[in-house]
Design a protein around this nucleic acid. Structure first.
Length: 188
DNA sequence: GCCAACGTTGGC
DNA sequence: GCCAACGTTGGC
């Protein structure tokens, strides 16, 4: 299984106190049903997802991103598939949440870059969902094109210093990006 | 390759 | 519990 995130595995077992209570990042009661997921295309691209059909989104080692997958994603949610650290970076297509959240198996694998010595099957630390391929955009949407749109103002991926590998996307912004990519996918 | 931004670690 | 040091992300 290809790793989706290039963050190095935790080198040491973090102290127990390092596992802080998850902070709520979304407004309570407001469902987020659209997402943006980042992947470096040389590691795992939209074409890799097209080839595999479905994949486990392994290797996320950020609590906020984990919480999105564990607590807020639902099967059927759409996600913009974003190619990061690329030339150019931008949105390459659409994926869909294809499972409930479950423990990321790579955290238990000492051979994996994503091994976490502090995680146990009884007390997993990292969760993931499966994503399935929906479509590759007929027109790749570069970051610069997103930035040029006033109707995408406030979109998380455009915020300075935004590094989170999983982000929420409003329906309005999703609609705009789908149109920019000439997507066949329509909002339900 | 640079470096700003940010999350995590660990000394105190 | 503070906060400096460190490591990573990711655009440029």
């Amino acid at each position: 299984m290809a790793a989706k995130n290039t963050a190095k595995a935790l080198k040491k077992a973090p102290k127990k106190t390092a596992a802080k209570a998850p902070k709520k990042t979304a407004a309570p009661g407001v469902p987020h049903n659209a997402w943006l997921i980042k992947s470096e295309p040389h590691v795992f691209s939209i074409d890799d997802l097209a080839r595999d059909g479905k994949t486990a989104w392994e290797g996320v080692r950020n609590y906020q991103a984990r919480n999105f997958m564990r607590d807020e994603m639902a099967e059927g949610d759409l996600a913009l598939f974003y190619h990061s650290s690329s030339d150019p970076s931008g949105v390459a297509g659409i994926a869909e949440v294809a499972s409930a959240a479950y423990p990321d198996p790579s955290q238990f694998d000492p051979q994996s870059d994503y091994f976490d010595a502090a995680a146990t099957p009884e007390e997993p630390r990292w969760f993931l969902v499966d994503f399935k391929f929906v479509e590759r955009f007929p027109a790749f949407v570069p970051l610069a094109a997103l930035k040029a749109r006033s109707d995408l103002e406030g979109m998380a991926v455009l915020q300075k210093g935004q590094r989170l590998s999983i982000q929420t996307v409003s329906d309005a912004h999703l609609k705009v990006v789908l149109a920019m990519g000439k997507a066949k996918t329509k909002l339900k």
